[in-house]
């Protein structure tokens, strides 16, 4: 098991109190697995990704364990965490287009970054060149400044840079959001290629674009209001979801073959709860058409089928329980 997250709770400290952005999150990512993380804005996707690699104020670690390759990650201790960052766990940030120092040549920055991590740039150089070839970038980019690259090139450069030390887990945060559809496809395929070649062991792809995940992810985890709602293989999430939120989310997606002018896209009525003071019990309760009294209690995130996790009192394995 590559990554195990148990009961991870991370809050944002604000003047008005703690924003409970991530509450009791538990899930696993297997070796070689590409897990998509989806959900609407503000559901805690990025918080989850960030807290795994760089948990900094105003984020505050409240509890939980994160284990990567049987080593517990000291995610709350930013100093100790430095040993794992880049080498074991790495990130392609949301702002990949601005992620490189604007006044430094890319090659020089890469060299200084590696040397500062006690890795010899000379030894890695050959591999770096090979990977630049792989993402179809000229080796000359190392002699360029970031502003000389297009947005897509910067993205690919950051991708190569982040994975240079073959991390076990790569977190790709919204990396396709700023790209046009054809570049999105190219970049996502490169991610899969990187996994296939073993540059990264497993991947966590954060996006709100489920269609991208359908193309590249092995599993998808849907989050709602700071908690995982459902995690299953991509096919099951798309075709046989159990959680009412997932069902409504998937049915809100446009489908091929349906003329949208004849059939309006459905949306989920209501808005997500404010996380400053979220309601107890199931956080989807207010918007859920299936809500019952039992939903006043927090539903556990349990495995109902092989690799299929759901946090809902109304999914079928629970219906036999005394309600």
């Amino acid at each position: 098991m590559s990554l195990q997250v148990e009961n991870l709770t991370v809050y944002y400290q604000t003047l008005r109190g703690n924003v409970q952005a991530l509450e009791n999150t538990t899930f696993n990512i297997a070796d070689g697995e590409i897990m998509g993380l989806a959900g609407e804005s503000g559901c805690g996707k990025t918080t989850l990704g960030q807290s795994l690699i760089y948990l900094n104020p105003p984020m505050k670690y409240m509890g939980g364990r994160v284990t990567l390759n049987d080593h517990e990650l000291p995610i709350a201790d930013t100093k100790k965490m430095d040993d794992f960052r880049f080498k074991e766990i790495s990130v392609i940030p949301q702002y990949a287009m601005n992620a490189m120092n604007p006044t430094c040549k890319i090659g020089k920055m890469t060299a200084e970054l590696l040397e500062s991590k006690k890795v010899s740039f000379k030894e890695v150089k050959a591999e770096l060149d090979r990977r630049l070839d792989l993402v179809r970038m000229s080796r000359d980019v190392l002699n360029m400044y970031p502003i000389e690259l297009s947005g897509g090139m910067k993205q690919r450069m950051v991708m190569v840079l982040s994975t240079l030390l073959n991390p076990s887990l790569l977190i790709a945060d919204e990396m396709t959001s700023a790209l046009d559809v054809s570049s999105q496809k190219a970049v996502s395929e490169m991610l899969v290629e990187f996994r296939n070649r073993g540059f990264v062991k497993s991947l966590m792809v954060i996006t709100h674009d489920i269609s991208i995940l359908y193309q590249i992810a092995n599993t998808i985890m849907i989050m709602y209001a700071g908690q995982p709602a459902e995690k299953a293989s991509t096919d099951e999430i798309i075709h046989a979801p159990h959680h009412p939120y997932t069902k409504m989310l998937i049915s809100a997606l446009p489908r091929v073959g349906i003329i949208q002018s004849k059939k309006r896209l459905t949306s989920i009525p209501g808005t997500p709860p404010l996380l400053l003071d979220p309601p107890g019990g199931c956080r989807f309760r207010e918007r859920c058409p299936l809500a019952i009294d039992k939903c006043q209690e927090v539903p556990p995130f349990i495995e109902i089928d092989n690799g299929h996790y759901v946090a809902c009192w109304r999914q079928r394995n629970f219906t036999n329980l005394s309600l």
């Binding site: 690699i53 760089y54 430095d82 040993d83 880049f86 990130v91 490189m100 120092n101 970054l113 500062s116």
Partner: peptide, 9 residues
């Protein structure tokens, strides 16, 4: 932020 996320000194 990117450099810090990569654990740069």
């Amino acid at each position: 932020h990117y450099l810090l996320a990569l654990g740069t000194p």
